[in-house]
């Protein structure tokens, strides 16, 4: 499987401006505990309002973390959703947070937890890269790039 890993960027410089230097250094260390692997967004149908986004969050830290928001300058809004099967009936529900255990990982994948991505521009083709910002409950922000793709390439 092709695996892309994006390290966390960006937040350290913001913290440097906002806080003291030791805090910033500590924050930068914490931030690098979270990695995102294999991020992709299902190719949206022409003029489709929604599509799904998927990724694996790897938490190398000693404390659990919670993803609480996702956003992208290319999407109108992004929500965290889960799919629940009750027998053969499928339900989708927005969720407030997605937990990633300490020294563990959580995968958002078709048929389970996913990002519900609203209002991407029309005509996005597979391979197009979309910036994505993930916000965690403790305020940490992870900036990644995700690619438009299809499920077959992410088995």
């Amino acid at each position: 499987m092709k695996r892309s890993v994006w390290r966390v960027v960006g937040i350290a410089s913001v913290v440097l401006l906002a806080g003291t230097v030791p805090e910033a250094a500590e924050m930068a260390l914490q931030v690098s505990d979270i990695r995102v692997e294999d991020a992709w967004i299902r190719t949206p149908a022409p003029s489709a309002e929604v599509t799904g986004g998927y990724l694996t969050i790897v938490n190398d830290g000693n404390a659990a973390v919670e993803l609480v928001a996702a956003s992208s300058p290319r999407a109108r809004t992004i929500e965290l959703h889960e799919m629940i099967m009750e027998g053969e009936v499928m339900r989708m529900r927005p969720v407030k947070a997605i937990a990633v255990p300490a020294r563990g990982r959580t995968t958002l994948k078709p048929g389970g937890l996913h990002l519900m991505v609203f209002g991407l521009p029309d005509g996005l083709k597979p391979g197009v890269r979309i910036p994505l910002t993930l916000t965690f409950a403790d305020g940490r922000i992870v900036e990644i790039e995700t690619a438009i793709g299809n499920a077959e390439a992410h088995k």
């Binding site: 529900r93 927005p94 519900m116």
Partner: peptide
């Protein structure tokens, strides 16, 4: 086939629970 529109706290307005078979 069961199907039921559900109002949810989402930009989608409503989502539809349904049989997947």
């Amino acid at each position: 086939v069961f199907h039921e529109a559900e109002a949810v706290d989402s930009a989608a307005g409503y989502l539809v629970a349904h049989t997947t078979s």
